[in-house]
Simulated scan of single mutants.
Amino acid sequence: MKVDVYVPLVLAALLMVAGPAVSRLLAPAYAARALVITVGVTAATSTWALLLLGGTLLDDAPPVVAEAQERRVHIPDPVPAVIAVLALAAIAVGAWRVAGVVRKHRATGRMLRRLRAGHATDGELIVVASTVPQAFALPGTAGAPGRIVVTSAMLAGLDATERRVLLAHERAHLRYRHARFQVVADLAAAVNPLLVPLRETVAFLLERWADEAAAAEGAGRASTARAVARAALLAHRAPAPYRSFHLSQLAITQRIAALQAEPLPQARLLAVAVLASALLPAIGAADATTDFVHSLGRALML
């Protein structure tokens, strides 16, 4: 347990470095899927590793200590008590961060439901009369399909081809359920701060995935690049509180450059390799769990 329990934590740090490189080598649809699964597994296993570290404090429980003293048996500490306490503190901080992410997503969901209720429509498009240029995909729920929300200002600032690209881009977000990908990345980053850069990488890949889907739908890569640039320029001119995250905060220039270059390869073997890396922290956590159970069993059988 002294080594295996740290494997998920070490691999989370390595993933933080390797994740952006994967986004530059692999087609966005494959890269996004591989990274989301990997960060989800890494977040879960690193949390479990922290629980195991914190659980070693059970050896210091008064009944166990008293029994050991009575039998004159020395119980070795699997890890220093300081590390166990820090692990429990990290779990508490992670739980607090996860609660914040859940509250944020619930608040966003309530706002989107009110928007949906205020613009009842049978079509996929909801046009909001607003001077703020915005466009986003409204994820579907169990009782309602997804919708594309676009303001009148955004539509007025684009020509016919650019509007088709914009709608195709947002339609791709709905078709491939990108909102779920982002929720997983957000929760993983909340659980393990080492995965925060991967949250941003996933968000970027989802936008690139939608760009490629829009280009493949018939607009072409050059037209899609122009539409992305134009929509980003319009969104950037909006007042700061209203700027769309995916149109202003992410690397727009990188998205445009990617559309102007040849498509990245699917490289399925690379995607499989990324997914296989998620097995390593799982194996480490499983081995550490076995050691922990044996250690706990010895302590309880004094």
Score class of each variant (00 low, 15 high):
Val98Tyr: 07
Arg171Ile: 00
Leu155Cys: 06
Glu67Cys: 09
Val85Trp: 15
Glu162Asp: 13
Pro145Glu: 13
Ala156Met: 04
Leu155Arg: 15
His105Asn: 09
Ala135Glu: 03
Ala120Gln: 14
Pro80Tyr: 10
Ala95Cys: 13
Leu88Ile: 04
Gly123Asp: 08
Glu67Asn: 10
Val64Arg: 14
Ala81Glu: 07
Val85Tyr: 10
Val150Thr: 03
Leu112Gly: 05
Pro139Thr: 12
Arg97Pro: 00
Ala89Pro: 01
His119Arg: 13
Thr151Trp: 13
Leu112Ile: 08
Ala107Ile: 00
Pro62Tyr: 03
Asp122Trp: 05
Gly94Pro: 06
Val73Arg: 14
Thr151Arg: 10
Arg110Tyr: 01
Gly118Pro: 05
Ala153Glu: 03
Ala66Asn: 09
His119Cys: 04
Arg103Ser: 10
Val101Gln: 12
Leu167Asn: 04
Lys104Asn: 05
Pro133Trp: 13
Ala142Asn: 07
Ile148Glu: 05
Gln69Met: 12
Ile126Gly: 06
Pro139Cys: 09
Leu158Asp: 00
Arg116Glu: 14
Ser152Thr: 15
Ala92Met: 02
Val73Lys: 12
Arg163Leu: 05
Glu124Asn: 03
Val102Pro: 08
Pro133Phe: 09
Val73Leu: 15
Pro145Cys: 12
Arg116Met: 13
Ile148His: 06
Pro62Ala: 10
Leu158Tyr: 10
Leu125Pro: 01
Ala117Ser: 12
Gly146Cys: 11
Phe136Val: 00
His105Lys: 14
Ile83Ser: 07
Arg163Ala: 13
Asp159His: 08
Arg110Gln: 11
Ile126Met: 15
Ala120Asp: 12
Glu70Arg: 11
Ala129Phe: 04
Glu162Tyr: 12
Ala144Ser: 14
Gln134Thr: 09
Gln69Glu: 14
Leu86Thr: 04
Lys104His: 06
Leu167Cys: 09
